[in-house]
Each structure stands twice: as C-alpha cells, then as structure tokens.
Simulated scan of single mutants.
Amino acid sequence: MRVLLVLVFTLISFSSYSQGETEAEKFWNTLVKHQGKAYEGKLVSPESDSRFEGRLVMHVRSATDQEIKIPFFVGEDRSRTWVLTKVEGLIKLKHDHRHEDGSEDKITQYGGLASSTGFANMQIFTADQETSDLIPYAAGNVWWITVDETSYTYNLRRVGSDTYFSVEFDLTNPIETPKAPWGWVD
C-alpha cells in the first residue's frame, strides 16, 4: 500500500510539474502578446553603423503556436524578418532575407537553435551547421533576444572577434504598423 501511495504521489507531482510553462514557453507567450504591433527602436551597439541608418522598426506581424515572424525594417529597407519556431520544446531563430521583388537573398535562413529552454526573458541561439556552411565566418555567431514588459532587444556577438551588434525596441509605445516586408502580401 505504501509503495502504491508513493507511486500515486510521484505521478501527481510529475503531472503538476509537467503542466507548468517552461522558460521558453514564457518567452514565447510574452512575444505573442505583441502580435500585430510595431515598435520603433534604436541602435545600441555600435553607436552608429551606415548599414542601419534610418528609422528602425520591428513588427510582430504573425504569431501562431509554432511560429512567430518579426519583420525588422531599416528605413525603407524591408528585407529582414526574424523567424522564431518551436522545435521539441526549444526555440529556433532564423533570418529570412529578401530582395525587393520578394525573392530570397543568397544569404538567408541562417541562425540556430537554443541549446536549452533559456530564460523567460532571454533566449540564446548559437550558429547551426546550415549557418556555418552558408557563412563560414559566422560559425561562431551567438544571437540572443531579450523581452520584458518594456523592451525587446536583438543582439549578435561573433565569438573570437570584436563584432557586437545590439538594437533595442521600446515596447511601451506602439507605432503605426508598417507595410508588408518584401516578399509578403498585405
């Protein structure tokens, strides 16, 4: 009888634990709350970069249970979209780059899978094999995204180099939603 009670109590405890949200799910759900909203951002590091001149805008354009697409616009350049997908309880980040006609850039779909469920306010992604094959110098890339009630940051550090990129968006002040990214239909 005692063994049966221990077994039942263990199963109840495990069941309660397994029903709780993982850190990755908390992160995901925070982002989903912003679906349809756009926010203005600023370059944090480097302080200036000619490739990122103009108004910086992120738009949580679509969010489902399995995929979140966040276009990132730099001025009139609507070529970039961050694509987050769920893979066996973890989150994968890919970068979708398009030309103005909607065709894929030759450097696209790079990124990586988080190695753990991470934190509720931060997910870390290391370059995957596809990235290493596509962009050999990016094999040491580490990206991380942070999100809380007030801000969203996208960050890149290239291990073994001085490359560090960070852009921050103010989530307290939604702006008018922009046009569709290149390759999308409104």
Rank of each mutant, 00 (worst) to 15 (best):
M1V: 15
V6I: 15
L7E: 00
L7K: 06
V8H: 11
T10G: 01
I12T: 11
F14M: 13
S16N: 14
Y17K: 15
G20S: 07
G20N: 12
T22H: 13
E23H: 07
F27R: 00
L31W: 14
V32K: 14
A38Q: 02
G41N: 05
K42W: 01
L43P: 01
S45R: 09
E47L: 09
D49T: 06
F52H: 06
G54C: 02
V57G: 03
M58G: 06
H59K: 00
S62R: 05
D65E: 11
K69I: 05
K69D: 05
P71H: 06
V74H: 01
W82Q: 12
V83Y: 04
L84A: 02
K86Y: 08
K86R: 09
V87C: 06
E88Q: 10
I91N: 00
K92A: 12
K94L: 15
D96L: 15
R98S: 04
H99P: 00
H99E: 09
E100F: 03
G102V: 04
E104I: 00
T108D: 00
Y110F: 12
S116R: 04
T117D: 03
A127S: 14
D128M: 09
Q129N: 04
S132T: 15
L134N: 02
A139P: 01
G140C: 13
G140E: 11
G140S: 14
W143S: 02
W144I: 00
T146I: 11
E149I: 13
T153Y: 09
R157D: 02
R157G: 06
R158T: 06
G160N: 07
D162Y: 04
Y164S: 04
Y164L: 08
S166T: 11
E168D: 15
E168Y: 12
F169D: 08
L171E: 10
N173D: 13
I175R: 13
T177P: 03
P178C: 02
A180R: 10
P181S: 01
W182F: 02
G183C: 05
W184Y: 14
